[in-house]
Design a protein around this nucleic acid. Structure first.
Lengths: 132, 132
DNA sequence: AGAGTTCTTGACGTGCACGTCACCGTAACG
DNA sequence: CGTTACGGTGACGTGCACGTCAAGAACTCT
C-alpha cells in the first residue's frame, strides 16, 4: 500500500522535484501538515495530494495565499456547515476566474499559432528567394 | 483615429489600471518603448498592444523576462531571417507549454466543480436534517 | 568512538516586481 | 508671479518565495 506510506523530506523532494526549504516553507505557511516523528517530518498521502495542487496552482500564477484558501476549500470536513454556503460562493468565484483564464489562454494560444503561421510563411518566401 | 493617438503616462495608467511606476519599470526592462516629447513619455498604439499582452502574460504566471521574449516574437519584422527558424522553434515550445497549461487548468476546473457539487450535496443534506 | 549523512531550527541573503519618497523641471492657472 | 499639477530621475523600501549558511541533534557505518 504505497497509498498510506509516509515519505521523508528527501523522498518527498525527489518525488516532486522541490527542495527541503520549499517544503518547510510551505509548512510554515500552513499549506502542508506533515506529522512529526520526534523532530523529523513525515509527509502523508494528504500532503502529497496538497503539494500536487500547490505546484499546479503556482503554474497558473496563483500566490501561495490564494492556493492555501483553495486547499482549504478542498479539505472541508463536514464541520462548518454554517460557512458552507459562503464557501461554495467563493469556490464558484474562483472557478469562474479560472474559466476566464482558460479562455484567455486559449485565445493567446491561437494568436501565437497565427504568428507562427506567419513566420513559417516568411521562412518559405525566404527559401524561394534563396533558390532563385 | 483613436488608433494612432498617443497617450500620456496618466492616460495609459487609467486605460490599463496600472501605476506610472509600473510603466516606467516596464520601459526600463525593454517591454515598452514610448516615444519622448522632450522628457515626457508618449505611449503609442504599439505600446498599448504590448501592454495588453504583458498584463495577460502576467495573469498566466509568466515572468516579465518570459514575456519580453514572447513580445519579441510577436514583433519580428522581416529582418533576422537567419534566426527565424530558431525563433519558430522557441515559439512552438512556448505554445505547447501554454497548451499543457490550458489543459491542466481545464482539469483543475472540473475537479473544483466536483468539489462544489459535493459541497452543495452536503448543504442539501444539512438542510433536510434541519427540517426534520 | 569517530566520521559521515540526514535532518532540524534560526537567521540572514536574493531576485523579482514593483511601491514610496525626495527632489527637480515645466507648463498652466488665478 | 507664486503655486498647483503633472511628469521626470534616482535611490531606497517592501512583499513574496524561496536560497543559503551556521550550528546542533540523531542515526549509521566502520
Amino acid at each position: 500500500m504505497t497509498e498510506n506510506e509516509v515519505l521523508t523530506i528527501r523522498e518527498m523532494c525527489d518525488a516532486f522535484n522541490v527542495t527541503p526549504r520549499t517544503l518547510r516553507f510551505y509548512e510554515s505557511k500552513e499549506l502542508l501538515f506533515p506529522i512529526r516523528e520526534g523532530q523529523k517530518r513525515l509527509f502523508t498521502r494528504r500532503d502529497r495530494a496538497r503539494l500536487k495542487l500547490i505546484l499546479r496552482g503556482k503554474r497558473f500564477g496563483f500566490s501561495l495565499e490564494d492556493i492555501r484558501q483553495l486547499l482549504d476549500l478542498y479539505e472541508m470536513g463536514d464541520q462548518q456547515k454554517t460557512q458552507l454556503h459562503e464557501t461554495i460562493k467563493i469556490a464558484q468565484q474562483r472557478m469562474s476566474e479560472m474559466s476566464r483564464q482558460r479562455d484567455e489562454l486559449g485565445q493567446a494560444i491561437s494568436e501565437l499559432a497565427e504568428q507562427i503561421g506567419w513566420a513559417e510563411k516568411q521562412l518559405d518566401k525566404a527559401r524561394q528567394t534563396d533558390a532563385a
